[in-house]
């Protein structure tokens, strides 16, 4: 006769408690949601507006040195173009090349037509800064 010995070890069911896991997961989620910045970083371009009623010639010694360059922005046949003196330019690269030939202390006046989108005015201003022009003003005439 064969005797069967049953193993009498106590078997325990593995019970996984989900509560602390969820607590920690949510805690981490809240932490990352609070620290992550979804916005694109904003940069600034600075400009000084000329004060109204104050003439540019407060320093008379500079008067004779001031050379102005008018950049006009307007549409010609539906196409937005830049006009400098007698030339018409179609791109910022052309403007940058043109500005590179001029002295840095030249006064640049950006004179955009009313219907020109703001992004292109900023485009021209950005190009002037890229060309190391220090005196840039916006025309508010018209």
């Amino acid at each position: 006769m064969k005797l069967k010995f049953q193993q009498s070890g106590v078997k325990r069911r593995l019970a996984v408690s989900m509560t602390p896991l969820i607590d920690v997961v949510f805690l981490l989620m809240v932490f990352f949601l609070m620290t992550i910045n979804f916005e694109k970083p904003e940069l600034v371009l600075e400009n000084r507006l000329p004060q109204l009623g104050v003439e540019a010639s407060e320093d008379p010694s500079k008067d004779w040195e001031t050379v102005e360059l008018h950049i006009e922005m307007a549409r010609q046949g539906g196409q937005l173009r830049l006009f400098l003196e007698e030339r018409a330019l179609d791109s910022y690269a052309e403007l940058l090349d043109y500005l590179a030939l001029l002295p840095d202390d030249i006064l640049v006046v950006i004179d955009a037509a009313d219907d020109v989108p703001y992004k292109h005015v900023i485009g021209v201003y950005n190009t002037c800064l890229q060309a190391s022009k220090q005196e840039i003003v916006f025309s508010v005439a018209g």
């Binding site: 694109k40 940069l43 600034v44 371009l45 600075e46 400009n47 000084r48 000329p50 900023i122 201003y125």
Partner: peptide, 11 residues
């Protein structure tokens, strides 16, 4: 008499 202006842009 506010002469300091900054234009916000994206890179």
């Amino acid at each position: 008499n506010i002469d300091k202006v900054q234009f916000a842009t994206w890179e």
